[in-house]
């Protein structure tokens, strides 16, 4: 196969675009996609202080590298979840990249900060790992961004993540979640930060290609607790559909955002937001779910 743009030997075939690219032209394609998403969805500008959530996986490492190369004012934020070797390796990798690039990095070590790890929290509160992990992450994304006076929280969610979430929410008709799913989640409260997903049109495979071409180290293993997660099943199912009909994932998400999402707006819950009486973070209850979880932990 030969590159569609320059005619050189191709390195990657993108069936959904009926195109093959050499590595140089692929990076230009990647660039155009991310730039267009940021501009079209009015995500952020060069004047904004960005906090980029970095796990050490290929998607967040690709986006961190891209934002630094473009000269955005970005600080990475990594959470050490205390999940054995997986967390240790992820942290080391992110810290090494930060050193190599002289890039700003905030590491939140939850064991040091709050006295628990995700496995210990899940066991003691008898909740699933993924549920407590999600709760802790969402809480910290906003808290760290607020404490650091960042304008925008940037995440590495990609097309596969978004299409899998959409499939999951559709299968159980989670109308409230369907009303909210979007590449930009605006701030609904002065203490809630805007969240954006600049990679929402790029597949996991394209982000993997970006890190391989650029020689960026990344954690190439899944969280040990994600085995059997529904999100992986949904992604594999969507990839089978994609094999039979290239472009399925993109169509599913893009047409939902363009045509479907508006029909769910009536189900958007009109949440009364106020500040947690314990920590001051925004919540719908008197005490936020993070503080309630910590209280349960202390009672055990």
């Amino acid at each position: 196969m030969y590159c569609r743009r320059c005619g050189e030997k191709a390195e990657i075939h993108l069936r959904r675009h009926r195109a093959a690219f050499c590595s140089k032209c692929f990076l230009e394609y990647y660039d155009r996609q991310v730039n267009r998403n940021i501009r079209k969805e009015k995500m952020f500008g060069f004047e904004d202080r960005l906090m980029m959530v970095v796990s050490g996986g290929k998607d967040s490492m690709a986006l961190w590298d891209w934002l630094l190369k473009k000269g955005y004012n970005v600080t990475a934020m990594h959470i050490d979840l205390g999940i054995g070797e997986y967390s240790k390796d992820s942290r080391e990798l992110v810290e090494q990249f930060s050193q190599d690039w002289k890039a700003e990095l905030i590491v939140v070590d939850i064991k040091q900060e709050y006295g628990f790890t995700i496995p210990s929290l899940a066991r003691k509160t008898r909740r699933s790992f993924c549920s407590v992990c999600g709760l802790v992450k969402r809480y910290l994304f906003n808290k760290v961004a607020l404490d650091g006076e960042f304008n925008v929280v940037v995440t590495g969610h990609n097309l596969d993540d978004e299409a899998a979430t959409l499939l999951g929410n559709t299968l159980s008709w989670q109308v409230g979640y369907l009303a909210r799913q979007a590449p930009v989640l605006p701030s609904d409260h002065p203490k809630l930060k805007k969240k954006v997903k600049p990679l929402f049109t790029l597949t996991e495979r394209e982000n993997l290609a970006y890190v391989l071409i650029n020689g960026i180290e990344f954690i190439n293993e899944d969280c040990p607790y994600s085995k059997g997660a529904n999100s992986i099943l949904y992604k594999e199912t969507l990839n089978r559909l994609e094999e039979a009909n290239p472009g399925t994932k993109q169509r599913f998400l893009a047409t939902f955002l363009r045509k479907g999402r508006k029909y769910f707006q009536a189900y958007k819950e009109d949440l009364k937001l106020h500040e947690c009486e314990n920590c001051g973070q925004v919540t719908t209850a008197e005490v936020c779910s993070f503080c309630r979880l910590l209280k349960r932990l202390q009672q055990k």
Partner: peptide, 18 residues
């Protein structure tokens, strides 16, 4: 394995299906 969800590399270069 699916080429939709995998990349294959030889000598540091990714390969197309052909």
């Amino acid at each position: 394995f699916s080429l939709e969800s995998h990349l294959v590399v030889r000598n540091g270069r990714m390969l197309t299906p052909d």
